[in-house]
Amino acid sequence: MSETKDKAKIKEAVKRRKRETYTPVVPDLQLGFVHHNVDCIGCRACEIACKDKNGLAAGPRFRRVQYIEGGTYPEVFAYKVNMSCNHCETPACLPTCPTGALFKRKQDGIVDIDSTLCIGCRRCEAACPFGAPQFDPSDNLVKKCNMCVDEIEAGRKPYCVMACMMRVLDIGPVEQIWNGELQSVAIGPNDEVSRQVQNMADVELTKPSIGFIAHSKGKVK
């Protein structure tokens, strides 16, 4: 892959990147994910759908269903926290990129990466508190969830959402997710959406565009 890179173009991008002061993009509308931590059966169909959609080999995982369990036998509990890229309001990855390959889309707030500019330096990977950027050793590139922009542009939803057998993963304008206005079967009749759950990096770091229906043991006061 690297042989086919346009080196002049990358050099130009680096120069431009140095010239410009980074001003965060304020999107017209911010899309985000919502996930029900309790009702999710943890089957990972979303993960596999994502791998297939993005043509990834074993290794990089854009979407990660995390299993949390605790308690002492026989009083135990378990729930799932499902995350890919949180398409943050202030992405930590973006300013670290030396070539400006990472960008945030104005129209929907999706954070994407231009693979023709990525040099595989993996700085973004280190910067992200949620582990979203994934290094793919097969072509020496960092890749990440782009919320299936091609599907969104075609009037559909991302592969992971459409794969969810339990219908507990969805997308929508993140303000609507947070204030409970989003019409989605992912959110049950009496469910409250929270921005922060246990063991997740502080949302104030990057303001991730994601909401959860938290497990009673996963709630943050």
Binding site: E20, N54, G100, A101, F103, R105, K106, Q107, D108, D112, I113, D114, S115, T116, L117, K143, N146, V149, D150, I152, E153, A154
Partner: peptide, 20 residues
């Protein structure tokens, strides 16, 4: 959405060539 671009913004879909 593809039409909406600023000078700074890369292509709407990053992994070209990519059959939709």
């Amino acid at each position: 959405l593809v039409e909406l671009q600023t000078a700074k913004e890369a292509r709407a879909f990053a992994y070209e060539p990519y059959p939709r």
